[in-house]
Design a protein around this nucleic acid. Structure first.
Lengths: 221, 221
DNA sequence: TAGATTGTTAATCGATTAACAATC
DNA sequence: TAGATTGTTAATCGATTAACAATC
């Protein structure tokens, strides 16, 4: 039987960042197994599916507690709940989206946040024409209303989908408004206070990782 | 004066993956410096801007050759050319996009590939209605035409932007058609032969990394 | 020249892997 | 019970940092 579920904030102060991203992969795979009716799994099964060793799966989880059953493995539903607790996604998170261009609209239309505990609760743009009406049921506002709306709706995360030259000022405004975490899609490094977390997603960089790998493959053309 | 430019494929067989992703960040920052008229930089300047140590910048570059000038630093244009050579983006890459939904259309409309050496040369979907006409000047085709079009246009990279349940079969088809590298936006782990490179981009996972960081911040609410 | 900065080696630090007693 | 599998410790491996001679 597992210990009491971990509550967010309990995590040991020094967990390697790589561990946290694997946790997300474990979660995704466990949810997949559950959908297929599989009730338990083991560190070697889970590792095999994702390309990690059984030892790594167990070590990663051990940073946060003991969630398995010796001789049995892990109950998928228990481990899902445990990992959600660790990642902080047992609660729902409201998100602000800034920038209602092509990418912004795609993010607004993306189903797939929902079942992971995320919801875009407001979208902002500085162009009045783009925020004239709700998009995919998400209310839209002028960027200048962000401080008020973020406070009212208790929004803590934001997605920045504006052109690169505006990303830093938008980030500053969001931080000012009380946002604690930002995913930045603009291809520029932005700086935020140490109290704010940031994740950068840059498509060109992902593609460069790919070309490097392709060009340096052992052999195949 | 730098050695001859590295040509793709020259890279030492064992370069840590983290080094390659920093290389992309160096490139992005160097291009930013160039646009601002800055002709040279140093490992400590570059490191400061991105949050790395000067030693790390120099060590990363040393995996691939010597590109700096002792006492002077690095000429931005030389280093840009060198890094593009390493990453393989000195040449242009043609890309296939599969899945013309919300995300697919956003990717088609994304300006920002272009100046990094990438171009979406064809878009595919299995719904005839979605591929009735070009989108943002990109020709669209039925997915079943992918093998022929990929060969004709000498496409080597692909973006998968289809719903999760279809991602694996689309990947299989693309590999069959001769694609060497895939960026997968579907929230599912897909497997490809060892000769094919893959990069996974999952928005929910990025957000989970963020909530973990937010929930575990030293202190701030 | 003196000051700045590289490329590289050696030392430190951190993460992964292997092994195994404890458990079901 | 015998077989399976965990959680954890110790050993290995790899990446980062610090230091410095060489260079401009």
């Amino acid at each position: 039987m597992p210990e009491s579920l971990p509550s967010p904030g309990d995590s040991p102060s020094q967990v390697p960042p790589a561990v946290v991203s694997r946790l997300s992969l474990y979660l995704r795979e466990l949810q997949h197994l559950l959908r297929n009716g599989q009730e338990t799994t083991s560190s070697s099964d889970l590792g095999d599916r994702l390309g990690f060793s059984d030892a790594q799966v167990r070590k990663d989880l051990a940073y946060f507690g003991t969630f398995g059953h010796p001789g049995i493995g892990y109950r998928c539903d228990e481990l899902v709940a445990a990992i959600k607790g660790i990642l902080g996604t047992h609660q729902d998170w409201r998100i602000a989206l800034v920038g209602v261009g092509n990418l912004g609209r795609a993010l607004l239309g993306y189903r797939g946040f929902g079942n992971q505990g995320f919801r875009i609760a407001a979208a902002f743009d500085s162009d009045p024409a783009k925020v004239a009406q709700p998009i995919d049921d998400v209310p839209t506002y002028l960027l200048s209303d962000a401080p008020r709306i973020v406070a009212e709706k208790e929004i803590r995360l934001a997605l920045i989908a504006v052109p690169a030259p505006f990303a830093q000022e938008v980030a500053d405004l969001l931080v000012q408004a009380g946002v604690h975490g930002i995913v930045n899609f603009a291809p520029v490094t932005i700086s935020v206070p140490k109290t704010v977390s940031i994740v950068e997603v840059d498509l060109a960089i992902e593609l460069e990782q790919l070309t490097f790998a392709v060009v340096n493959k052992p052999k195949s053309g």
